[in-house]
Amino acid sequence: MVSPKQDLPQGTLDMLILQVVALGPIHGYAIARRIQQISRDVLQVPQGSLYPALHRLENRKVLKSAWKASDTGRDAKFYSLTARGRRHLEDETASWARLSEAVALILQTAKGETP
């Protein structure tokens, strides 16, 4: 099941992770699945990037983690947002919105001028 793979732009992985984690405590595998599902299989997060990113965010105290019993019966590491993470996510989303708006605007204008 190799889906059409789309590389993530630099820095957006963190934001996506935060967005997914914001919905409630969640473990690494579920994060990867959730991103894949929500993006309708367009975005696939390689494990080689996911876990270093999770650990980095945790070290920066944007995420916190706890080992809890999961549906499989084994303990899994559940990540959740810290207060700082919540603020961070808001900032990131806002600036991402501004950025994509601006990019979209430029693209439209460019199309308009050179048909």
């Binding site: 473990h27 690494g28 595998y29 990867a32 494990q47 876990y51 080992w67 499989t72 084994r74 303990d75 899994a76 590491k77």
Partner: peptide, 16 residues
């Protein structure tokens, strides 16, 4: 230990 457990958990879930 935790790192190992976390990555193994991921693999197990995918297999499952």
């Amino acid at each position: 230990t935790e790192l190992d457990a976390e990555l193994r958990d991921h693999v197990e879930r995918q297999v499952a």
